[in-house]
Simulated scan of single mutants.
Amino acid sequence: MDDVEIEDVNDDDVPQIQKAPENQDLTFLSQTVGDVLAQYGWCLLIVTVLVYLLIQQLSKRRASQASSTPPPQTQQDPLSVARRQEALEAARRRMQEEHDAQTAIFREKQKKQEEEKRRQKIEMWDSMQEGKSYHGNAKLSQSAEEASSSTVLKPKTEKKSLRSTGYNPLTGEGGGSCSWRPGRRGPSSGG
C-alpha cells in the first residue's frame, strides 16, 4: 500500500494526513544506539565479557559435577552381586596365598644365609683357637675353588711404586705418557 496523502478542500476542521519520512524509525534507532555506545561503550564491553566468562565457568562446573556423580543405581540382581563379591574374595585369597608363599621362600633364604654366616663364624673361631689364620684358610679354600673352576691362572706382575719412578702429579713430570698442565692465567680471550 502506498502512502497516500489526502487533502481536503476545506482546511477547516479536518486534519491533514501528510506523508511520513521513509527512514525515520531506522535513523532514530541508529542515533539512540550510537549515543548509548558513546556513553557506556566500555562498560557494556566489560559486562559482556564478564557474562560470557560466567557462563563458561558455570558450564564447566555443571559438566564436572555430572561426571563426578555416579549414575543412579539400577536394580541389580542379588545373585549377580553375590557372585561378584565371591569372585573378589577368591581373587584376594589367591593374591594373599601367593604373597604368603613368596614370604616363606624369602624367610627360608634368610635362614640359610644366617646359618651360613653362623657356620663361618664358628669355623673362624675354631681356626683362631687352633692358632691358624682364618683368612688364610678362607683364601686357600677360595683359591682351590677358583682353580677347580678355571685352569688358566694369570701370572702376577710386579707393580712399580709411584714414588720409585719419581712421579709427581703436580709437576707433570715422570708419570708416563700423559701429563696435566695447568691452564693459562689471566683474563679469558673473548669477543
Rank of each mutant, 00 (worst) to 15 (best):
V4R: 08
L88K: 10
E108D: 14
C43G: 09
L162F: 14
R163E: 14
T69E: 15
N137W: 01
P70K: 14
M128Q: 12
R119M: 08
E145M: 09
Q73T: 14
A90T: 12
S59M: 11
Q113W: 05
E98M: 13
G191M: 05
S67T: 11
S188Y: 01
S161G: 09
K112S: 04
Y167H: 07
E7D: 07
N23E: 08
I46M: 02
S67N: 12
R185C: 00
Q75E: 14
Q39N: 14
R93A: 07
E98C: 10
W125F: 10
Y134R: 00
P71E: 08
Y167W: 13
S164R: 15
L58E: 07
S59T: 13
G186Q: 02
T151Y: 09
Q102K: 11
A144Y: 01
A147T: 03
A63Q: 15
F106R: 07
N168Q: 12
Y134W: 09
G190E: 06
T165C: 06
S67R: 10
K132L: 10
E146Q: 05
G136K: 01
N10Y: 05
G136R: 02
P182H: 05
M124N: 02
A87F: 11
A144Q: 06
D126F: 03
D126L: 10
A63R: 15
E7V: 13
L53K: 04
R107K: 14
D77C: 10
K160A: 08
T74A: 12
L79D: 05
D35L: 09
E145V: 06
S30W: 01
V47A: 13
T157K: 08
L170M: 09
R84T: 13
R163H: 09
Q39G: 13
Q75S: 10
D8M: 13
V9I: 12
N23I: 05
D12G: 13
D11C: 04
A82K: 04
